[in-house]
């Protein structure tokens, strides 16, 4: 069985070509996506459309569930322009590279009203999942994070973001393939670290060991690379939209569709981080206007 690849992300390409062993194993198999560990690095092979640094996007959008045709822990070989997984071949010959441009922020021009509008939209969309999935903003870990990191930072205590404890409490929090806490932190750290270059404060990066001792391998790997700006198209679009006065809520409404709550949680991370940073550098009060839609006692 041959699958033609349409796009390959910059990191996925790097991991394949720079690998010495040129071999890996399948780790997690989902109906339309499977995760591969290649010399310790993650590569995601998917039928879904969204491009990302770790992804190989197949051209065929539909087909038999991968869970029926691929087993976990199967040996994978990279040879020439193909990935061989048992009887399956992923053909990379005419693949387009999805370049990793990084999160190219030069300033945060987003208006206060745009952020408040987005927070209202997000909170109303969280209403739809309440009772079925964990709503992260209702958890004590989230409140702890706001109290110990977000609020002090917004008030000018920049070093507070270096305290790893509140991050550890959030990692792995929630159910599903990527727990809500990991998704929130992905959005939060991607925004924080992309903005640190503009405003000259120190960013924060979780270590791989710290992440993998707190959450699952696949979700942890996504979080690890997100904090360096290696994010998929949807997340990239929402972070980049912070450069413009309006457009953030549009980007948010595109992202919220991902997963059961993943899109919501990543968006919340971007929203909280950007409001916190804007309170620090521009106006006071935007953070509380945003958070009041999620936590009235903030």
């Amino acid at each position: 069985m041959i699958f033609k690849a349409k796009y390959i992300g910059c990191l996925a390409k790097k991991f394949l070509t720079r690998s010495l062993k040129k071999a890996g194993r399948t780790r997690i198999i989902l109906p339309n996506t499977f995760y591969v560990e290649f010399d310790g690095n993650p590569i995601i092979v998917t039928r879904k459309r969204g491009r990302a640094p770790l992804n190989i996007n197949l051209s065929q959008a539909q087909g038999e569930s991968f869970q029926r045709i691929i087993q976990p822990d199967l040996r994978i070989l990279f040879k020439g322009d193909t990935l061989k997984i048992g009887n399956i071949i992923v053909d990379l010959r005419h693949v387009e590279i999805y370049e990793c441009m990084g999160l190219d922020l030069d300033s945060l021009r987003v208006s206060d009203d745009e952020l408040v509008k987005a927070s209202f939209i997000l909170s109303r969309l969280y209403d739809l999942v309440e009772g079925r999935f964990l709503v992260i903003y209702r958890t004590s870990q989230f409140h702890d994070f706001l109290t110990n990191i977000v609020k002090p930072f917004a008030n000018g205590v920049e070093d507070v973001v270096q305290n790893p404890e509140p991050y550890r409490k959030l990692m792995g929090l929630g159910q599903g393939f990527t727990p809500a806490g990991d998704d929130f932190l992905s959005g939060f750290l991607a925004t924080l670290n992309a903005s640190s270059k503009i405003y000259g404060f120190k960013g924060f990066f979780l270590s791989k060991d710290d992440i993998l001792s707190s959450t699952s391998w696949a979700s942890g790997m996504l979080l690890y690379y997100s904090q360096y700006g290696y994010v998929g198209e949807g997340v990239s679009k929402i972070v980049q939209s912070l450069r413009d006065k309006v457009g953030f809520s549009d980007a948010l409404m595109d992202l919220v569709r991902i997963g059961h709550t993943s899109g919501l949680d990543i968006s919340l991370g971007v929203l909280v981080a950007s409001s916190m940073i804007l309170d620090l550098v521009r106006s006071k009060g935007i953070l509380s206007r945003v958070i009041r839609h999620f936590w009235t006692n903030f």
Partner: peptide, 8 residues
């Protein structure tokens, strides 16, 4: 977006 502007 209009709903958010009116009510949010």
């Amino acid at each position: 977006k209009a709903f958010a502007e009116k009510y949010g």
